[in-house]
Design a protein around this nucleic acid. Structure first.
Length: 113
DNA sequence: TGGTTGACGGTGG
DNA sequence: TCCACCGCCAACC
């Protein structure tokens, strides 16, 4: 049932958990963080079955800022994002590139490169 | 073991 | 800008 049992699955959930409020990430981004940049589709599948608290699956959207899906409750997903300060249009997130979450690198020789 | 499904992504028309 | 087709992957039957 829960795909989170797999290595890939748990990594995906972990990545999604790391997304801070007010920020969003694409399925592809999560997939990349999980180690498989081409597994965006698989990530969507995992999100679909995810039912775990602490996993802000509503912060995961499609590439280009498309809302993606939310188990038929897309409206809810939209409101949730707005509540966090994310401007969401009818079909796309406004300023997507600006609210897009950037994973924090572990070691950075300089804060700014 | 094999085929189908699906909260995707990118390209082309 | 929107829609259709193809390619990728993990879960399900």
């Amino acid at each position: 049932m829960m795909p989170g049992n797999s290595e890939f699955g748990r990594r995906v959930l972990a990545a999604v958990r790391r997304i801070p409020a007010g920020r969003v990430a694409t399925y592809g981004d999560i997939a990349a963080l999980a180690g498989k940049p081409r597994a965006a589709r698989a990530v969507g599948n995992i999100m679909r079955t995810c039912g775990e608290p602490g996993v802000p699956c509503h912060r995961v959207i499609g590439a280009g800022g498309s809302l993606g899906g939310y188990g038929g409750n897309l409206q809810v997903k939209r409101e949730l994002l707005r509540a966090e300060g994310v401007e969401v249009g009818m079909r796309r997130v406004r300023g997507f590139e600006q609210v897009r979450w950037r994973p924090t690198p572990h070691n950075r020789r300089s804060s700014v490169r």
